[in-house]
């Protein structure tokens, strides 16, 4: 059985809305932020690695053409 009978009473949290939603909101924000940060970190790292790989491949090609 639900503890609230309407959406507005759910949002009001029995008069404790600011406290309950502040605590839950900060928790949610930090957890979502941590996930987004970890995903972005992975993207940056892979992009850097790709870039470095390409640069080294280009350098190798350049050296070969100089030698020939």
């Amino acid at each position: 059985m639900m503890a609230f009978d309407s959406v507005s009473s759910f949002l009001a949290m029995g008069g404790y809305a600011p406290y309950v939603w502040a605590a839950w909101g900060v928790t949610l924000a930090l957890m979502v932020g941590a996930v987004l940060h970890a995903r972005a970190e992975r993207r940056w790292l892979l992009r850097d690695l790709h870039r470095r790989e390409r640069r080294q491949a280009n350098a190798a090609v350049g050296n070969n053409s100089n030698a020939s």
Binding site: M1, M2, A3, F4, F10, M13, G14, G15, Y16, Y19, V20, W24
Partner: peptide
């Protein structure tokens, strides 16, 4: 948030 009953002392907080 939805189904647990409110506390008799602290209410929904």
């Amino acid at each position: 948030l939805l189904y647990a009953p409110a506390d008799y002392q602290q209410g929904d907080s």
